[in-house]
Simulated scan of single mutants.
Amino acid sequence: MPQEIKYPLLAKPHIRLSGTVDQLMYQNFRSQLDACPLEGTLVVALTTLGGDPEVARTMADDIRLLQEHDGREILFLGKVAVYSAGATFMAAFPVDRRFLTRRTRLMIHERKISKQINLEGPLRMMVASIKAALHEVEQSILIEEEGFRDIVRGSNVDFGDLREKAPANWYIEAEEARDLGLVLDVI
């Protein structure tokens, strides 16, 4: 059976997102979501090279809340590139509601931070500055690991394996993602 017949809803996504995951994408996402039918299955299509992981987590939270509040079935369709923050957003969808188009690539990596600590002034202030930076890194690692667990939940990928591959930017081709159970199918 052709995939188009098997998954007819995926051919006409209700929400189409493309570009950098940022506040502008979030506004576009909310506008399209607000315009969606109030009942029935929704399809969200995404193509992105990445962006702000906190915006991706916000969009993911909107999906989670809609699924929990309304009991809606919401499907994810990754197209061409689902990198970085895109994978964070995809993690909001259960594995059995994730799809990729042929030749799509996922890319999962560790969060990145760029920060300088300027140590100048009273000694106690230096300790506070160092502790604040350390807490930021520690919390970012915890958030990253929550996201990694969400990505692999229900798949054949072990959390430890993902953590091991993420520092080197793990690229996963669509069929491999399906075979690993990270998505339900490739269309």
Rank of each mutant, 00 (worst) to 15 (best):
P2C: 01
K6N: 06
L9S: 11
L10I: 08
A11P: 09
A11E: 14
K12D: 04
K12N: 10
K12F: 08
P13E: 05
H14G: 15
I15Q: 02
S18G: 13
S18K: 15
V21W: 01
L24Q: 12
N28V: 08
N28K: 12
F29S: 02
R30K: 15
D34I: 08
C36E: 01
P37R: 15
P37M: 13
E39G: 08
G40P: 05
V44R: 01
T48E: 00
L49F: 07
L49C: 06
G51R: 00
D52V: 04
D52F: 04
P53S: 10
P53G: 03
E54H: 02
D61H: 14
I63Y: 06
I63E: 00
I63G: 02
L66I: 10
Q67T: 12
E68H: 11
G71N: 03
E73S: 14
L77H: 07
G78Y: 03
V80C: 07
V80A: 13
Y83V: 11
F89R: 00
F89L: 12
M90A: 12
A92F: 01
F93Y: 10
F93A: 02
P94T: 10
R98T: 01
F99M: 08
L100T: 02
T101L: 14
T101G: 07
T101V: 12
R102S: 15
R102E: 14
L106W: 05
L106H: 06
M107R: 10
I108S: 01
E110P: 10
E110M: 09
R111M: 06
K115F: 02
Q116G: 06
N118A: 09
L123S: 14
R124S: 14
R124P: 09
R124V: 13
M125Q: 14
M126F: 07
V127A: 12
V127Q: 07
H135K: 08
E138T: 04
E138W: 01
Q139P: 00
Q139E: 12
S140C: 09
I143E: 11
I143C: 03
E144K: 07
E146Y: 08
R149C: 04
V152N: 03
R153E: 15
R153V: 13
G154R: 01
G154K: 03
S155Y: 11
N156M: 13
V157H: 03
D158W: 04
F159R: 03
L162M: 12
K165I: 04
K165C: 07
K165M: 13
A166Y: 08
P167E: 13
W170Y: 14
Y171A: 07
Y171M: 10
E175W: 12
E176S: 09
R178M: 15
R178D: 11
L182C: 06
L182N: 05
L182E: 05
V186K: 01
V186R: 04
